[in-house]
Amino acid sequence: MKLGVFTVLFSQKPFEEMLDYVKASGVEAIELGTGGYPGNAHCNPAELLEDEAKRKAFKKAVEDRGLMISALSCHGNPLHPDKKIAKDYHDTFVQTVKLAELLEVPVVITFSGTPGDHEGAKHPNWPVAPWPNDYREVLEWQWKEKVIPYWKEAGKLAEEHHVKVALEMHGGFSVHTPATLLRLREAVGEVIGANFDPSHMWWQGIEPVAAVKILGREGAIHHFHAKDTVIDQEQVNMYGLLDMQSYDRMQTRAWQFRTVGFGHDLKEWADMFSALRLTGYDYVISIEHEDALLSIEEGFQKAVNNLKQVLPRESLSEMWWL
């Protein structure tokens, strides 16, 4: 496995300065934002698709430093009921897929999106209860009329351009659990997989090692984010795991994101990487730092240092003791 970083963390740095910084920190791979929620500070697909010389120079800058691009990320909501919003996210996804093929990047990361609850809705609707029956009916309408049809077409596009789609299982979106990821994968095909982020498993009450095994057995993990979560049980008792307080309400939130090792010990991370290896994942572990208690540099460096202790780096050899 290789250690990587989602470079939106360093959007304030110029592209080549960012490359030098992460390389010096011991990172081997970069994940680049191409628009949507992450922005495109380091990788503007419209510009790079238009200009072959600029695209070659871009790729050379990465490769000359001994780095690789693990994924292009355009997290957004292409199923948004506002057609203009949905089109903007969709267009960014299409551009990202086309650019990924030209840059020989095998994975594009995004969210599944969340539709409204009927034709003509103005806002997304994320049902989280099976009763009253209205919620279940909304959920089934969303999947039948919006989620599956959209991703069947988007999946075909990705396959045509030799790219896998890694959907981040994130609360607020139609695909947010192993079950919903596998439901979509069954309908669309193996082009769909997970960008597995354990931080979103922990706050939903899902044990990440078990989730890795569930998805790994299906070959359904296309990429991995390294981000931690801490649960404050006292506040869970007040607000529940579906806590709607802003992330800046840190003293009262039921859970919040932490850098690697600050929510769960390194044994849990080691178990996760062992489960990944057991199920055949041998790609990039990409640091995503959203820890409000640590600065950008300190949170990133602590994640690097902690991951280096438990991340398997060498290829497996035969069992010499047998």
Rank of each mutant, 00 (worst) to 15 (best):
Gly26Ser: 05
Phe10Thr: 04
Asp243Asn: 14
His289Ser: 12
Pro312Arg: 00
Val191Ala: 12
His170Ile: 07
Met169Trp: 04
Gly26Pro: 03
Lys146Arg: 14
Ala71Lys: 02
Leu184Arg: 00
Ile214Asn: 05
Phe173Thr: 13
Lys267Cys: 11
Gly261His: 00
Ser70Trp: 01
Ala220Gly: 05
Glu190Arg: 05
His289Glu: 14
Gly263Leu: 01
Lys56Tyr: 06
Leu266Phe: 02
Lys302His: 08
Arg55Val: 02
Val94Gly: 05
Asn306Cys: 01
Pro106Ile: 02
Ser174Ile: 03
Thr279Trp: 01
Tyr21Gly: 07
Val163Pro: 04
Gly35Ile: 07
Asn195Gly: 06
Gly39Tyr: 07
Glu52Leu: 10
Val147Arg: 01
Asp291Phe: 00
Trp143Leu: 03
Ile30Ser: 02
Gly76Tyr: 07
Glu290Met: 11
Thr279Val: 02
Ala270Tyr: 02
Ala303Leu: 01
Thr180Asp: 10
Ser112Cys: 14
Lys13Ala: 15
Pro127Leu: 04
Val188Cys: 04
Ala100Thr: 05
Lys144Val: 06
Asp197Arg: 04
Ala61Glu: 06
His161Val: 02
Ser295Glu: 09
Asn40Gln: 13
Ile85Ala: 15
Lys156Leu: 14
Leu241Ser: 10
Val236Pro: 02
Ala194Asp: 01
His118Tyr: 13
Val27Pro: 00
His200Lys: 10
Leu72Gly: 02
Arg253Thr: 14
Asp282Thr: 08
Asp243Ala: 12
Asn44Asp: 15
Leu294Val: 06
Ser317Trp: 06
Gln142Ala: 04
His75Tyr: 15
Ala270Val: 03
His162Gly: 08
Ser11Asn: 15
Ala226Cys: 13
Gly113Lys: 06
Trp141Ser: 03
Cys43Gly: 07
Trp269Cys: 00
Lys2Trp: 05
Asp291Gly: 05
Glu168Asn: 04
Trp131Gln: 11
His222Gly: 10
Arg249Gly: 13
Lys23Glu: 04
Ile109Gln: 03
Tyr135Phe: 15
Pro127Asp: 05
Ala179Ile: 09
Val304Arg: 00
Leu103Asp: 04
Glu16Phe: 06
Leu157Thr: 05
Leu67Ser: 07
Ser174Ala: 15
Pro38Arg: 11
Arg253Ile: 13
Thr177Leu: 06
Tyr281Lys: 00
Thr96Trp: 07
Val5Glu: 02
Ala270Ser: 15
Lys60Trp: 07
Trp203Leu: 15
Asn237Cys: 11
Pro312Ala: 00
Ala211Cys: 09
Ile296Ala: 14
Trp202Val: 15
Gly120Arg: 02
Asp117Glu: 13
Val163Asp: 01
Asn40Leu: 11
Pro115Leu: 06
His90Phe: 15
Ile148Ala: 00
Val284Cys: 13
Trp321Asn: 14
Tyr150Gly: 10
Leu32Gly: 05
Ala86Asp: 06
Ser73Leu: 12
Trp269Pro: 00
Tyr135Leu: 13
Lys60Val: 07
Gly155Lys: 10
Ala187Lys: 06
Val209Arg: 11
Trp141Lys: 03
Ala166Pro: 00
His225Cys: 09
Asp20Met: 12
His90Trp: 13
Ile296Pro: 07
Glu63Phe: 12
Gly116Ser: 04
Ala166Glu: 00
Trp126Arg: 11
Phe224Tyr: 13
Gly4Lys: 02
Ser317Asn: 10
Met319Gln: 10
Phe224Leu: 11
Arg55Ser: 03
Tyr37His: 14
Val284Ser: 04
Lys302Glu: 08
Lys13Gly: 07
